[in-house]
Design a protein around this nucleic acid. Sequence first.
DNA 1: CCTTTTGCTTGACACAGTGTAAATTGACGG
DNA 2: CCGTCAATTTACACTGTGTCAAGCAAAAGG
Lengths: 195, 195
Amino acid sequence: MSSDTRSRILEAAAGLLAQSGGAGVRMSDIARRAGVSRQAVYLHFDTRAELLIAVTRHIDEALGLDARLEPSRAARKGAERMRAYIAFWGAYLPEIHPVARALIAMQDSDPAASEAWDGRMAALREGCAAAIAALDADGELAPVWTADIATDLFWSMLSVPVWEALTQQRGWSTEDYVDRVQTQALRTFRGRGKG
Amino acid sequence: MSSDTRSRILEAAAGLLAQSGGAGVRMSDIARRAGVSRQAVYLHFDTRAELLIAVTRHIDEALGLDARLEPSRAARKGAERMRAYIAFWGAYLPEIHPVARALIAMQDSDPAASEAWDGRMAALREGCAAAIAALDADGELAPVWTADIATDLFWSMLSVPVWEALTQQRGWSTEDYVDRVQTQALRTFRGRGKG
DNA sequence: CCTTTTGCTTGACACAGTGTAAATTGACGG
DNA sequence: CCGTCAATTTACACTGTGTCAAGCAAAAGG
């Protein structure tokens, strides 16, 4: 069956990316690891960008993305929602990070990769907006911020390069990252003292 | 004089990068704009990475980097130093951003580019550390943070991709960026209420 | 049982962009 | 006048993506 080979290619790509941290993985490497010819890869995916995008979807499914988002969706209080969303992100990012990095690296040269990545960032921003809105609804958003500005800022705090800098360059563990970014976000956005 | 051609190449590279936002500038483009052959560029710079690194130094000199850093170095209070440093960074980043972006883009493929960029990020972190230390010396660093952790976080807030996201994608002006990041940093790090 | 389709193979090639190498010209200085 | 230096032209090697064409084997279907 065709989807068998297709899956092997996706797994091979995901494996190599995880192994290399997201850089320097060529179509020929993926083909070799999947046990097929380089051209066979192009029978399933027209371009490298398309393959990488398919890998992200594949990983999302394997991880059960929706289920992972449940806790933050279920949170009643804004602050709780914000904490849950950061916790989700801190656990999710390490998993897709290698593919994300590969996708980011080809943003300049490939419009399709760029668009796909923008889409994911837009989804991330939706989550941020929901958390900020919930905080605002509780009357807990600090009055220095509008919901829009706070959303932008929160979203920027969760960006991939920030995570890379803190965990990979500065050596923070996932737990460190989650705890500290939660603290930072709540100090920044929650109106402490007066509302 | 040799340095004449060399300067023309640096100017040409800086101009093209500024024009394109940092992507898609080839050695041949730079050569053409400088009015020399592509090979002449290689007589002055062994590799593309070396040229880009030289461009950053060239821009730093043209801007008077040291003078721009004076206000933050001169600040007495920690909070003032932090504000001044963010203001400096907000004004400086738009100027070197195109080269920075080009340099970042080749980090995966070129070790020299990677090292050069790491060096600049280390310098940025020094500035962050100094601001945090000053805040701490005033007894104003919020007790949830150690100086080290606060430095990491402050440094990540000032990273280039965050600036890109906020100004280029979300449309913040330089003034917006400076004001809001100042607010965010002070809310995050300054121990309000009790010390 | 024969034919067609499907999935993959091999091999060759075009293209872009970086970097290297060799032979040549022109100018300037001792 | 000679040597040297800057720069030129032309040609080529290398890497990686993507394309094209011909062929082969096994499954599907009449």
